[in-house]
Write a protein that binds this DNA or RNA. Sequence first.
DNA 1: CACACCTGGGAGAGCGCTCTCTGAGTGTGT
DNA 2: ACACACTCAGAGAGCGCTCTCCCAGGTGTG
Lengths: 356, 356
Amino acid sequence: MSDRAAKGSPTLEDVAREAGVSRATVSRVINGIRNVDPSIQDAVRQAVAATGYVPNRAARSLVTRRADTVALVVSGASADEGGAEDGGGPEAPLGGRLLADPFFGRISTGVVDWLRRRAMHPVLMLADSADARKQVVSYLRQGHADGALLVSIHAADPLPETLVAAGVPCVLFARPPRPVPVSYVDLAHRDGGRLAADHLVARGRQHIASVTGPLDVLASQDRLAGFRDALARHGHPYVPCEEGNFTLESGERATSALLDRHPEVDGLFVANDLMAQGALHVLRERGRSVPGDVAVVGFDDSSAALSCRPALTTVRQPIEEMAAEMTRLLLDRLDQPGARPTSVIFEPTLVRRQSA
Amino acid sequence: MSDRAAKGSPTLEDVAREAGVSRATVSRVINGIRNVDPSIQDAVRQAVAATGYVPNRAARSLVTRRADTVALVVSGASADEGGAEDGGGPEAPLGGRLLADPFFGRISTGVVDWLRRRAMHPVLMLADSADARKQVVSYLRQGHADGALLVSIHAADPLPETLVAAGVPCVLFARPPRPVPVSYVDLAHRDGGRLAADHLVARGRQHIASVTGPLDVLASQDRLAGFRDALARHGHPYVPCEEGNFTLESGERATSALLDRHPEVDGLFVANDLMAQGALHVLRERGRSVPGDVAVVGFDDSSAALSCRPALTTVRQPIEEMAAEMTRLLLDRLDQPGARPTSVIFEPTLVRRQSA
DNA sequence: CACACCTGGGAGAGCGCTCTCTGAGTGTGT
DNA sequence: ACACACTCAGAGAGCGCTCTCCCAGGTGTG
């Protein structure tokens, strides 16, 4: 069993000798079996078992020019970069916000789940600075991975274009900010905003406002646009807004500001659950009951939605399924490099709980 | 720039021709420069730039027998396995609890952060079933990764022993349940328990109880043991306990049970922050003020500790640093395979907030 | 009965890199 | 003056695998 430690693991050659056939035949049996006599197949398989043979990945990759690995790149700006940045609110002491975000956990769950059916596993890469981005590109160009799953948040992120230009097959999570010939999965964020608006109106709310996500993020813009459109159709021409940056603390701050300016608010759409949790804190402090005085609708259906009291009514994003689909698209792309880019858009759903 | 797509990227040979030297010399320049004339070094570097050369990882790995990659294995039982399992509480709808846990996010932050200084990146693997575990072992034996960082939760997990037996260099996060000659990092969980006990006593609490983690997890046992020992020293011979499984819902359930049996409780140590959040919910429902009527101390200092109201006083586990150290140990091990296994134990600290 | 055709298996040429070995050139010691 | 070390660059042998030939033997056809 510990041949490996012993003195170099057995090679194809060893197996071939053991089975009394040629290297080529063993190779044929191990990969898709093409025209090999069943009795010889058996002999080879026995020899493999006897020698404890495991194919050497590097040698195979060298000739097939495939790594059988994909990169999962989490991209976003960090402190050393320009662009919209939260200054490290109360949830930042953990350092490296990107991976600590439950959002990322849900994505990797979906990715890993799908990949391992093909005995593949993702290489985790963080692209949070110009340097890191360079590293990612070079890593991919070295052929260590066949393609990339790119989770990019900010609209200013150059990585999607860079990778596509470098000829690296990739699939994005979320529509690229500028048009790029690349596949992606996304959520119909506008529909999500509409769902929230319809629900608040159905609950009889008259003074409806929103805490938005950072407006340099496409998803935030779309959620807000969908929300506004739907409210307009319900006869609400103006929607008070305050911008947050998806952190708990920013949700508290934005909600406070909103209530100061518009104390009459009785319905609130918050662009993610974490900020919605912050909104609940502020409302409680101010003695406003939820959903009695103010109904609150969140977005994501993350674990935060369940750990609040009252539990959040929220717009669910099927992140795991989206991540799985993203992975599927990349694998398809690798199987047939010629294919045209595609996009798959998922529909959000409203999850009703106590807050609205 | 898109040489790659063009027709096979340039090889060492191409660079050598361009620079007018031999392949070997180019290789010497590209790796640690050993005895190469400065003027020739320049020529080679220019040729590299001119051709856009990027070394082929597979070819290099084939001869060096190093993959320059490590695996980050997250191991734990899942529904299809025996062993202590929560039935999928309210936080489970996301599927695949393991990666969605913020705990994992913090670990990967620490790992990635350290690895990329060496231009390395982790391959993410989930070992949540016998099949998946087999896949992990085979993957490592194929030489796709040089070693493994193993985050294993349950005491019954066979993976640590399997990997060590297979001769795969690895480092564990948390002490292995059975003695195995392997390096690991861990927290002084007993000291954490003691910290919580001392704090509750200092706050003048007389009736102190605990919601524990699953007792098949070493860390849970140790936290409880340390807590009990310290209380005994303070003259509290008996500590009412209720077992949870680290989920919010189990924290609620355990706290309810505890309060039913011991309504006099005025100090509570909960073995992780998520369950502590559940405890706060129950206390609020029962009209017990925190910290007035009951003081609550959590464990971890996760983001949950900050999103509660009142914010949790908690025992901080420096997970990112522990993960970074784990990574460092593995890299050391890879650099000098002969070295003896080591262990590094981190000290917890008490973070005081509102709940106690 | 000669010819083409198909099937199953072996021989061998690389994939792109590293690294040892060899040898030419340049100093040093006696 | 010669032997000796020492420095630096090239030649070339693989690492373990895949895959394209190519050939042997069996089957079908005119």
